[in-house]
Amino acid sequence: MEPVQAIVLGPAEWAARRDAHDVRVAGWVEPHLERAVRREKHPVLDFLFTYYNHSPGALRRWHPGAGVVLAGDPPHRRWSGYVEVEDGVTADPALSGTRARIARDTLALLEATAARRPVFGCHGMHEWAMVYRLSPEQVRHSAVPLRLPSAEVDAVVESAPLRCTHFDAFRFFTDPARPLNLLTPTRGAMPDLEQGGCLHTNMDLYKHAYRLSPLVPSELVADCFALAREIRAVDMRASPYDLADLGYPPIPIETVEGRREYVEHQRDFADRAAVLRGRLIGTIRPVVDALRPAGTAAR
Results as ranks from 00 to 15, higher is better:
241 Y>F: 15
245 D>C: 04
216 V>R: 00
54 H>V: 13
253 I>H: 01
79 W>N: 02
269 F>G: 01
134 L>V: 10
123 H>D: 15
21 H>W: 09
109 L>M: 09
87 D>E: 15
211 R>L: 10
122 C>T: 08
104 R>A: 14
162 L>T: 11
102 I>D: 09
183 L>P: 02
82 Y>R: 10
129 A>S: 14
114 A>G: 04
135 S>T: 14
208 H>A: 13
205 L>A: 02
279 R>P: 01
251 I>P: 00
49 F>I: 06
204 D>R: 13
104 R>F: 02
138 Q>P: 01
230 E>C: 04
26 A>Q: 11
132 Y>H: 15
78 R>M: 03
224 C>P: 01
240 P>D: 03
192 D>N: 07
115 A>C: 05
184 T>N: 13
3 P>S: 12
4 V>W: 03
183 L>A: 11
34 E>A: 15
23 V>A: 13
215 L>K: 10
295 G>W: 00
32 H>L: 05
235 D>V: 08
70 L>Y: 05
97 G>V: 11
11 P>R: 04
51 Y>G: 00
286 P>F: 08
121 G>C: 06
23 V>Y: 02
7 I>W: 02
79 W>D: 15
159 S>R: 11
230 E>S: 11
257 E>N: 10
163 R>A: 14
266 Q>D: 14
55 S>L: 09
25 V>N: 04
214 P>V: 10
47 F>A: 06
49 F>L: 06
97 G>C: 07
152 E>S: 09
128 W>V: 03
92 D>K: 08
208 H>T: 03
117 R>Q: 14
114 A>R: 15
34 E>T: 10
110 L>M: 09
220 L>T: 02
18 R>G: 05
249 P>M: 08
203 M>V: 12
19 D>A: 15
140 R>Y: 12
42 H>A: 05
232 R>L: 02
232 R>H: 06
140 R>L: 14
288 V>Q: 12
291 L>W: 05
296 T>S: 13
64 P>M: 07
87 D>N: 08
209 A>Q: 06
24 R>L: 15
278 G>C: 06
155 A>L: 05
153 V>M: 09
184 T>G: 07
151 A>G: 04
187 R>P: 04
32 H>W: 14
266 Q>W: 01
131 V>A: 15
272 R>I: 01
289 D>R: 13
210 Y>E: 04
110 L>E: 12
24 R>I: 03
9 L>Y: 11
241 Y>V: 00
207 K>H: 13
134 L>G: 03
215 L>V: 05
251 I>C: 13
20 A>N: 08
97 G>H: 11
104 R>W: 03
189 A>K: 14
130 M>H: 08
118 P>W: 07
86 E>G: 13
52 Y>A: 07
229 R>Y: 14
207 K>T: 12
116 R>N: 11
140 R>T: 12
234 V>G: 00
61 R>V: 02
162 L>S: 12
10 G>M: 06
199 L>M: 13
64 P>Y: 03
247 G>V: 08
112 A>D: 09
142 S>D: 09
284 I>E: 00
33 L>D: 07
247 G>R: 06
